[in-house]
Structures are given as C-alpha cells and as structure tokens.
Amino acid sequence: MSLLISFLLTVHVIVCLLLVLAVLMQLPRSEGLGAAFGGSVTQDIFGAQTTNVLAKFTVWLGIAFFVLTLILAMAYARKDAGDTAVQRQLKAAAAAPAVTAPAVAGTPAAEPSASPVPAAPVVETVATPAPEASASPAASAAPAASPVATP
C-alpha cells in the first residue's frame, strides 16, 4: 500500500507542476504573464490554436488533479484498515497509559484526593442525650446513637 501511495504522490506532484505551468503559459486578455515566456513561443510550439490547446490541457490536468486527490484520500483512509490483529493490539498497547507500581512500605502514599476513585462517605455515630423525663434507668444509662453521614 505504501508503494502505491508513494507512486501516486509522485504523479500528483508532477500533475501539480504541469498545471501551474499550463496556467502561467496561457495568454490572458491583457498579455500579462503569458508574454513573459516570449509571447509567440507557445504559438510556435503548439501552432496557431495555442489558446485552445492550453485551455484543453489545463482542463485535463485539473481533472487529473482532482481524481488523484480522491484516490490518495481513499488510499490513506484504507492504509490503517489493513492492519492485522497483532498490529492493532501492539498499537493499542503502545497508546495505553503506563500502569504505576503499588507503593512500597516506607514510601509516602499518594493523597486520597489524587486517586481517580472517589472516596466513600464516612458514617459517624453521634451520641444524643437521653430525655431526662425517662422513667427507665436502662434508657438513661445508654445514650441513643443515630448515624450521621458526613461528606
């Protein structure tokens, strides 16, 4: 596939250069850049119908330019589609982030806020005083506990 792409790119560059030269050699209405090549030199090479020949040549080069561009775009799109399963796994492994080793004893651990997993809420029990008007001595001896969640 890469050999085909290299060949098509070479042909594409040649077509681009020829297209630029064909446009520059055309005689505009005011004899602008066409006169820079000698004016009558192109008429001597292509004959009296120079304008028609260069116009047709420019059209064919333009068509070739667009066709080559589309073919190159499809070739580049299919370039990665031809990978084998092993090549895709190797590319995926190279793109995966490196796994860090667990902390060794004696080294400071990472802060909990830096971990990607959110910390679970801490549930604390808060002792509430028992009502004083309670008649039962067991109720006044052990305070009631109610769970309170703190973020």
Rank of each mutant, 00 (worst) to 15 (best):
S2N: 14
L3W: 14
F7T: 13
F7V: 14
I14D: 04
L21I: 12
L24P: 02
M25S: 15
Q26P: 03
R29H: 09
S30K: 08
E31F: 14
G32S: 12
L33M: 13
A35W: 08
G39S: 10
G39D: 12
S40Q: 14
V41Y: 11
D44W: 15
G47F: 05
T51M: 08
V53W: 06
K56N: 14
F57P: 02
T58D: 04
W60D: 10
G62L: 04
I63D: 06
I63S: 10
A64M: 08
F65R: 07
V67Y: 10
T69A: 11
I71V: 15
L72E: 03
A73D: 07
A73L: 13
M74W: 13
A75T: 04
R78E: 09
K79F: 14
K79Q: 11
D80T: 06
G82M: 15
G82F: 11
Q87V: 13
R88H: 04
R88S: 04
Q89D: 13
A98M: 04
V99A: 11
V99S: 07
V99T: 08
T100Q: 12
A103D: 06
A103K: 03
V104M: 03
V104F: 02
A105C: 00
A105E: 05
A105K: 01
P108E: 12
E111K: 12
A114W: 03
A114S: 15
A114Q: 09
S115W: 02
V117H: 01
A120W: 02
V122H: 02
V126A: 00
P129Y: 01
P131K: 05
A133I: 05
S134P: 00
A135M: 10
A142I: 03
P143C: 02
V148W: 00
A149T: 15
P151F: 02
